[in-house]
Nucleic acid binder design. Structure first.
Lengths: 330, 330
DNA sequence: ATGAAAGCGCTAACAC
DNA sequence: GTGTTAGCGCTTTCAT
């Protein structure tokens, strides 16, 4: 059974294809009577627009690309939800790509987005992406890009992330204000700008609190989780009174270690940067600086739509974050 | 700067557009020499295929739709990852939709998939979807559908999920084999077939172990989490020696309650159906029947591709699950 | 091994 | 307010 097309409807109603098209798209020129006739016929004959044809004709795609380095349980679902909420309200759809944290793959995906003629790109960078040269073709094609979460600041594209430095600062400042002196910071991959900023915030807070700082108080755990065991050895041999953890991912890895060493919940104060779910799995709940994937997704998608509609200069947005303090009383 | 098209290349090389097209697509008819000339020109002039045009011409879209009821941190990221892994290897892309657990929205999305001329649909049903009438148009259009995770069994479409009944059976059987007698089962929304099957497995295991069963030993928590508090009251007043939790989502909600009542980790044995992450956040880790969103996503996407390539009858696949026992020794 | 030509379904000038 | 017409970029018969 062939699919009903605009031409079919045109013949059926002895009208011109363009009239059908206009009627279906609520063009003001069309008489309401005609419009209704057309829409009725469309309904009875199960007409469905061929988006492929429409977008081809219109030289755009109604698609927003979301490129993510990986799909994990932290942050990503919320982020996607936020993106989706905004994009669907703009009558567009989300086409999703995963770079598997590979800069080369990311580059291929960007190419593919060009081929798809997407209307915009939301991109969270792969871990080993060190420059944004591969995005130049998007810029040349006039396709707006918003970098989110894992970003590199550049004049060419807007970026949106939380205020990483301040997040770490607030967290560590809280520990300092509790009188904690020996503080261990646990960080993610050292290559990420996100990590560097959080390390800066960490150090700045220590400095501000006049807490003597040595590099031994920071550990960068690369992706694998194998570093966690060296971290365990370190913890075993060195007494800390507080621990700063820069992400939910690390928090989740480190918690079993702390249980094993009986450092949690009793002797070690913990503060994390978190989306606020994992901290409540623990008892007592963990004080954390709260961020939200959903908010970031929403904000980034809104910004992208803004860029799609109005050509405007790139901007760098830092979403503020707030400390969510938990009572550590038993 | 206009985008380079096949026509541009044709003029440039004094060849016919069709030759260019064939050369770029490695058609065997084309002489290697010509092919290389064309590909070189394509590279130097930054030719990018217009997928919109190609797919329009070919009457398909290179898109697989993934329709999910919601984006949560359990299961979904893994599922998406699995889907994506398979789909990208088949040179197709994933277009994602979220039904927000609304049957009406799901219906609209299905319509939209038709308009997109997607090559196949992976669908996890909304909570209040009770029939699959809205999928008939897909069937009529010859677009394969695979229902996954949240499913309704039907003759019309393939389904893929874990063996829910067996998962619950194994879990409760394990508790029974440990000599547990008073067992509380915590379940999700009663409307889901997934829930009903897990309840069946729960009861069957109790029956098999000759454990007297009363309906008071089961609670269905509807989505909101407000039921959790009534569950807390119930737990406070009734002494159980074991708890079965049917999902990670519930497990995560219930853990803080158990801590609060001091039922965990000491007095109450817990078994859950889980993807195996949350159980290790706790100490001691929780014995669970392990399933995997990634595996389900991969299997469902593979099945869908199979349906896309070869017209074959619908099948119902139940992925097996296994008990992952943890030592509860302190 | 390459060329010629048609057409996928839709929209947007431009006419009337 | 509706019709006419052309064409988006690509693939694919069919012919040579």
């Amino acid at each position: 059974m062939k699919r009903t097309t605009i031409l079919d409807l045109a013949k059926l109603l002895s009208l011109n294809p363009s009239t059908i098209s206009r009627a279906l798209n609520d063009h003001p020129d069309i008489r309401p009577e005609t419009r209704n006739r057309v829409k009725e016929a469309a309904k009875t004959f199960h007409y469905r627009p061929n988006l492929q044809a429409r977008f081809f004709r219109q030289k755009n795609s109604g698609l927003v690309a979301l490129i993510l380095p990986e799909l994990n349980m932290f942050f990503i679902p919320g982020l996607m939800d936020g993106v989706n909420a905004i994009v669907k309200d703009a009558n567009m759809s989300v086409i999703i790509f995963v770079s598997d944290n590979s800069a080369e793959r990311e580059s291929e995906i960007v190419d593919h987005c060009l081929s798809w003629m997407v209307k915009g790109v939301l991109l969270s960078l792969a871990e080993n992406t060190t420059h944004i040269d591969h995005l130049v073709p998007l810029e040349e094609a006039g396709i707006p890009v918003v970098l989110l979460d894992k970003i590199i600041e550049t004049n060419h594209f807007s970026t949106l992330a939380i205020d990483d430095r301040d997040a770490a600062y607030q967290a560590v400042n809280h520990l300092a204000s509790q009188g904690k002196k020996t503080i261990m910071g646990l960080f993610g991959p050292a290559g990420l700008s996100m990590t560097r900023l959080r390390m800066e915030g960490f150090q700045q807070a220590l400095t501000a609190a006049a807490i003597p700082f040595s590099t031994y108080d920071m550990i960068c755990a690369e992706n694998s989780g194998q570093y966690i065991s060296s971290f365990e050895d370190h913890l075993r041999s060195t007494p800390y009174d507080a621990l700063f953890v820069m992400s939910d991912e690390l928090l989740m890895q480190v918690i079993p270690v702390l249980y094993r060493l009986s450092l949690f919940p009793s002797s070690l104060s913990i503060v994390a940067i978190s989306d606020g779910i994992v901290p409540y799995q623990l008892y007592p709940a963990i004080t954390h600086v709260r961020h939200s994937g959903f908010d970031i997704g929403k904000a980034a998608a809104s910004l992208l739509l803004d860029h799609i509609e109005n050509k405007k200069p790139a901007m760098h947005i830092k979403l503020p974050v707030f400390l969510k303090e938990e009572n550590s009383v038993f």
